[in-house]
Each structure stands twice: as C-alpha cells, then as structure tokens.
Write a protein that binds this DNA or RNA. Sequence first.
DNA 1: AATTACAAAGTGGTCTGACCACTAATAATT
DNA 2: AATTATTAGTGGTCAGACCACTTTGTAATT
Lengths: 214, 214
Amino acid sequence: MEQTNNPKKMFLEIVKQLRQIITDENVTVGGKLPSERELAERLQVGRSTVREALRSLELLGLIETRRGEGTFLSDYRKHRLVELLSTFILQESKSKEDVHITRAALERDAIYTICMSKRLYTLHIWDAFKEKLIVEDMLREDIIREIIIISNNRLGLKIWFLLKQFAGEPYKENMKLEEKSLWIQLLIAMQNGEEQQALSLYNEWLLLINRGDV
Amino acid sequence: MEQTNNPKKMFLEIVKQLRQIITDENVTVGGKLPSERELAERLQVGRSTVREALRSLELLGLIETRRGEGTFLSDYRKHRLVELLSTFILQESKSKEDVHITRAALERDAIYTICMSKRLYTLHIWDAFKEKLIVEDMLREDIIREIIIISNNRLGLKIWFLLKQFAGEPYKENMKLEEKSLWIQLLIAMQNGEEQQALSLYNEWLLLINRGDV
DNA sequence: AATTACAAAGTGGTCTGACCACTAATAATT
DNA sequence: AATTATTAGTGGTCAGACCACTTTGTAATT
C-alpha cells in the first residue's frame, strides 16, 4: 500500500471494503456486521478510521449502531436522503409558500394518478373512507396520506412527509362540516375516476383551508 | 450536558452544530472552516468526534479537506448523494421506479398548474418554444425544466433537478420527429389552458419514451 | 434442579496524546 | 533581493485507555 505520497482518502476506501464485506458475507437487512475492533484488525487500520467510515454510513441511514450490541445493516429503503436534502440543500428555499406549493403538487398528482389508474380493486376503500369521515372525525393528514400511499408513490410519500413537517402542520385539525362534504365529493369523484372533477374539488378545498390560514 | 445516560448520537449533534457555525460565521462556498482542533475545543468534544462528523459530511461531498491546508465548504451542488444512492440504494429497480414516478408527478403537476393558472402574459413563451423545438433541436430536459420554472414551483424544481440526476438522464437525447409533434401539441394545449388534453398528451409521451427505455 | 444474582466479556462512544505527511508563512542565509 | 531552511499549523492515522451498555456464562441461592 502506497498511500504515503497518495492523498487518497483512507476512510473512503474503508467504505468500499465495508460494502465488499457486506456482500461477501451475505449480511442481510437487520444482520450484524463485524465489530469495530474486528474490522480494524481485518482491514489493518486503526479503529478510529473504521469508525469514520461507519459514522458516514450511519449518517446516510445505511447502518444502525446499538451500544453494547453492535452494528447492523439497516433497510436501505430507510435511507436519509430526503432528510439530508432538506437540511443541507433545500434549506434556502424553505419559504412556506414553496413548501405548500410542492406539497399540493404531490397531493394533486396522487389524486390524478388514482383517477387515471382505474384500479377497481381499491374501490371499496373509498366507501370505508367516506364512512370514517362521517363517523370518526378522520384527520385531514390521515386521509391525504392514505391517498398518496394508494397512488403508489413511495418516494413522493417520503417527500410529502418531510414537507408536512416543514410547514407546521395546519392539517391536524378536525374538519368542519363544509370540508367534510367537499372531501366526500372528492372521494366519490376519485371512485368514479373523474379526474377533472376530483382535481377541481381538491383546488376548491385548498382555497377553503387557506382562507383561515396565514 | 448529560449525555451520560443519553444514548444520543454525539456526532450527529456535531453535524448540526457545524451547520450552525457555517451559517453564523457566514462561511461561503470555498471558504475555510475552523480547524479540527479548534472545533474540538470550541464544541468541547474530542477531536475524533469532530472528525467523525466531518468525514460524514465529506462522504456527502458537502465539505472538502486538504491535508496541510484545512477544511473547506464545497459547493452543495456538487454533493455526492447521487453516487452514494446509486451505489448503495438505487440498485433496486423499485427505487428507480420510485424516482421516475415522483419525477413524473412533478412534471405533470407543473403542466396542470400552468394550464389552470391562465396567466396570459406567458403565452408568448409557448410560441418561442414551438419555434425552438422545430428549428433548434431543443433538449427534452431543457423544455421540461422551463415548464417547471414557469409553473413557479421553485422547491419542486430543485427536487426535480435532483431526481433527474438520480435517474440516469434518459432525457438528454434529441427528440425524434414523433416526440416533437407530441410536444408541440402539448404546448398548444397548455397555451389554451386545456389541462385535460395536456395531461393526456404528457402521459402519451411518457409511454413513448419508456418504450425505447429499459 | 431450577431460579436468581453476579461477574466477565464484548460492543459502541469518547477522549487523549502521539506521530506522520503536507502546506504555507516566516526567518535565515546567500 | 532572491533563495533556502525553519517553523507553525493542518489533516491523517494510530494506539491505548476509559465509560456505558448489553449479553452471556457462571456461581450462589433457593
């Protein structure tokens, strides 16, 4: 190894080798990685160097460490991409308006997608929703979340979650009667696949709740 | 501070504080951060802890370190999330699909928003676009970007930009004649505020380009 | 024999101090 | 004045030492 003259980043090399170990030893999600001390010995580097690599992966949400237990491979679907983007990259445009607009875009497209998909097997869900809306005082954000989930856009859901946090959650209140009736109409429109009507109702609802907001 | 009983991740706290320092001291792109030793003293932690945080940020490409010189804030547009996710996360086809779906959602909603907004003062833009499309061989991604910009969703634009990088850029090719005619129809639909027609054309275009893909 | 209590080993979390390699500013020499 | 040598400062790495915690195995108790 000639990294004396070579300003290569050792810890990046370790990251690479860690990936190798994970695949070689067939470490599955939730599985345990070798301990820091063992890794240090196997890779012939100091423990601190190993830690620097591990901490990087932890920040990304790719591994999980539990003191006294060990280091575990976490579900890569739980990666922290969205959070990192929000804290480091998207911070300058976190004006409330931007967030609202983008969130509305995701919500609107979920509605549109569902209307267009015409997957009849989910139709019974709408009846259940309508029931819940009337009887149980369903929360706004619950119903919207369900809709995005149904639209099958998981990444969009993640982003939506994040934006929701940014925006200070005006969705958590219970719905007034006027809203409820609007949503029931909206659900019916979605049930029938009438995308134009559904989107129009959604926009109407946005106007309604924004009147009380800001 | 009582982190003795607290299993909080110290290095994550350091990451946070680093961001604070960057904003407080107005460290600009390319600017120098305090040295590791100084940071350790200021934040009252060991140097190794500071390094774990710094290495995490370096893996993300958010900072740059030069031995003998110091640590510098790098352009956040050069972040490494793209490579990292592609190597660690996006190998699963499901994830790639997620990216495509979300990107399409943003694009679609931009089209919808423009159609509904009926801001006539942008109408001349469409003519210019049509002209460009025919004469200059405009790139797909250029035109879509412009559309999202016009839709006035700045945050959405940022997210779109990132997703575009993730997806391996199938948009950069020049358009075939069939695509061009589709887009011209789409532009006309937008010009006239016919949202249903525009979205339908967009979906048609998605099908078209996905046929050649994968 | 079964249960409980305790000790030991293993693990991540952190700190300290020590080198090394390198850079840039400073001092000394020419 | 120009060049060279010294020095201080920086990141890179390592080794060893604790700490807090979890698991495990063993010994004591019942």
